[in-house]
Design a protein around this nucleic acid. Structure first.
Lengths: 198, 198
DNA sequence: GAAAAAAGAACTAACGTTTATTCGTGCTAA
DNA sequence: TTAGCACGAATAAACGTTAGTTCTTTTTTC
C-alpha cells in the first residue's frame, strides 16, 4: 500500500494532475484511461478518487491553469509603453517559453479543450475568442502606425498561435537545436515577416 | 430500409469514409463512435460493416489518401527548374489549398494519426519524417544560394507546417476573409519572413 | 420480358470488453 | 485514536464488432 509520493509543498492531487498532463498529451484525453493514469501514478484506479472528483476535472484544471497564465501575461504586455511590434515580440517569446517549459500542459490545453463539457467548454471558447481579439488589436495598432505591413490581423493571429504550437515537433525530435536558438529562429522568421517594408 | 445514397461514380464506402472525416474532425477519432457515424450516414451501426472492415480502417484510409497526395506534389515540385524560394512558395500554396478544399481529411490526418495502429503507424511516421526532410532540403539549398536567410531549416519546416494547419481557425470563424486573401496573406508573411535581407 | 437465383445491403439482437466511477473495508501515518 | 488514503469488488453505460435474418436490387435463365 505505497502512497503517492509528493514533491515538497505539493499535494497528491498535483502529482495526479501532472501525470495526467503527460498521459493526455501522449494518448489524447479520450484514449487515456483512468487505469493508465493510475498505473503512471503507481496506485489503483479507485484510489485516484480520494483526490479528484472526476476525469473531466483533470482536464479543465489543466486547461484553465494554462489559460489564466496567458491572460495574465497579456494584461501585463498590453499596459507596457512599447511599440506594437515589440509587444508582438514579447508575446511571441512568452508563448514560445511556455511551450518549451510547460510543454505537456500547454499542448494538452491546445489540443484537448474540445472534450471539456459545459459550462467549461463555452467559457473556454469565450476566453479564447477574447484572447485572439486582443492579439489582433495589437497588430491592427501596429498597422496604423506603419510598423507592421498591411495584412489581415486575424490571419496573423492564426499563424502566430499555430506556429508556436509547432514546438511540439521540436520536443519530439532527437537532434534538437537549443531552446535559445529555437526561440531566436522563430522570432526571426515571424517578426521579420510582420515588419513593414520601408 | 433506406439505402445509403451515393454520389454518382462513388461507392457506399466512399460516403462512409467522407462522413467519418467530418465526424473525426468534430469529435476526434476516439470520441467518435460507430453509432455516431451510423447516424450521420442514416443507417444502423451494424450495417456499416457490410462496407468497411473496421473503424481503424476508416482512419488509415483517410490518412494515407492525404499523405499520398502530398508526396505526389512534392515529387512534382522537386523536379521543377525553379528557385528554392519559388519551390517553397509553391509548396506553401499547395498546403494552403489542400487545407482549404479538403479541410476535413487533411485536418484529421494531421491530428489523429496517433491513433493508427502498427504497421500503419510506423509507416506513417516514416513517411512524415521523410517528407519533412525533403522540405528542409529545399530550404537548405535556398540558404546556400543566399535566397533564404541563414536559419535552422527544421525550425522553418515546423513553422510552415503548423502555420498552415491554423487554417482550421479560418474555417471556423464566422467573418471569414476570402480564400484568395487568406492565401495571399499567409504567403506574404511566411515567404517574406524567409527572404534573405539584401 | 417474366421467373428464379444470387448478391448486396439493411435490420435486430447480442456478444465480450473497456470505460469511469462508487462502495465498503482496512491499513498507516500523524 | 483519528483522519487520510489505498484497496478489491462491483456497477452501469458505452464501446467495436459479430451473427443470423430479412428485405431489395441485380444478374441469370428460359
Amino acid at each position: 500500500m505505497a502512497r503517492i509520493k509528493t514533491e515538497k509543498n505539493g499535494s497528491r492531487k498535483d502529482v495526479i494532475v501532472s501525470k495526467a498532463a503527460t498521459l493526455f498529451r501522449e494518448k489524447g484525453y479520450k484514449a487515456a484511461s483512468m487505469r493508465d493514469l493510475a498505473e503512471a501514478v503507481g496506485v489503483e484506479a479507485a484510489s485516484l478518487y480520494n483526490h479528484i472528483k472526476s476525469k473531466s476535472e483533470l482536464l479543465h484544471e489543466l486547461v484553465f491553469n494554462v489559460a489564466n497564465r496567458f491572460v495574465l501575461k497579456m494584461d501585463e504586455i498590453e499596459s507596457e509603453p512599447i511599440s506594437s511590434l515589440q509587444k508582438m515580440e514579447k508575446l511571441l517569446r512568452f508563448h514560445i517559453s511556455e511551450m518549451i517549459h510547460s510543454y505537456e500542459e500547454v499542448y494538452v490545453s491546445d489540443r484537448e479543450w474540445k472534450h471539456l463539457s459545459d459550462p467549461y467548454l463555452s467559457n473556454y471558447q469565450n476566453q479564447r475568442r477574447v484572447y485572439r481579439k486582443r492579439i489582433a488589436a495589437i497588430i491592427e495598432e501596429g498597422i496604423r502606425n506603419k510598423e507592421i505591413k498591411a495584412i489581415d490581423a486575424p490571419t496573423v493571429v492564426l499563424i502566430f498561435l499555430h506556429a508556436v504550437s509547432g514546438i511540439e515537433s521540436w520536443h519530439r525530435s532527437t537532434k534538437k537545436i537549443s531552446a535559445e536558438e529555437l526561440e531566436q529562429n522563430m522570432v526571426a522568421i515571424l517578426i521579420d515577416g510582420l515588419k513593414a517594408n520601408h
